[in-house]
Design a protein around this nucleic acid. Sequence first.
DNA 1: CAAGGATAGGTGTATGTACACGTATTTAAG
DNA 2: CTTAAATACGTGTACATACACCTATCCTTG
Lengths: 152, 152
Amino acid sequence: MKLEDAIQSNKFKNPQQKATLNCLYTAWWLKSVLSKELKPFDLTHEQYNVLRILKGKHPEQMCVKDIAGRMMEKSSNVPRIVDRLVAKKWVKRATSAIDKRETVITLTQNGINVLETSTASIEALFNRILTLNDTEANQLNGLLEKLRETEG
Amino acid sequence: MKLEDAIQSNKFKNPQQKATLNCLYTAWWLKSVLSKELKPFDLTHEQYNVLRILKGKHPEQMCVKDIAGRMMEKSSNVPRIVDRLVAKKWVKRATSAIDKRETVITLTQNGINVLETSTASIEALFNRILTLNDTEANQLNGLLEKLRETEG
DNA sequence: CAAGGATAGGTGTATGTACACGTATTTAAG
DNA sequence: CTTAAATACGTGTACATACACCTATCCTTG
């Protein structure tokens, strides 16, 4: 769907303004497609992200701060997302022996299982819906990083 | 900041996967920059969107459904966002005379004022930080719409 | 070692999202 | 006209974000 149809407006001040709206809308679209696919696994988008981040270091543990540093949305409240993963027995929480301020998180076997089946589902979804070729995807990456250039 | 630094990872399966993450991250970045700029006006990103949508039709009224149709995030809970705008006396709520199921929303003069000053602030911000030229912005718009091609 | 600051993580609150559901009203069908 | 379906909106709940604040622990420096 064209952006104009999605938000029922074609009054864009300039291509740059349209690009920011397009970017926000595309992200919302991606998130909602992802969330729908994750729902049967009783996983939210953010819980899935935390599991993936943990998998990246597995079987090593990670502390809450390390997880937070790898999240897309920098103000995610990792302790509370971990609460929910603990409740579902997909991760375990323990106090670090080295630094007692740190809470270390470990994936359980159940956590690994749910992550693997849900990831297979997500990858199949993306293969179906993502039609950009490599050149286009690289170009998009370049433009998005240029957009964020003035960050900081 | 490069995506790799932002999420402390460079393990992307392919350029398409990286592009989806890049898009999600860019949207988060845009939202947080916007929200920071709106904070002094006691406006959230979503409240600002509703005011802008109302301005688009002003001085006509709009019903809740029409507002919802123009929102980026299609599952926004418009009645509750309107609650907060009513509390700040920036909009007024009334039952439609034509269709009593409808609630019609009108901008107040206060609402127009806060929208104008905040919009000036947002536009100045975007002029500072958005460095894409027209060609690049158009290219980005094209790629994002191609990404969403399989929608529906 | 003691004191002050930095750091890690948990918690409270306001706001928003996603989704299910209830109520009032309108529209359509018989 | 009467009844059933559709529509518009509000509300309840679980989850997440944004941000301020608290406590425990560690580190630095005198």
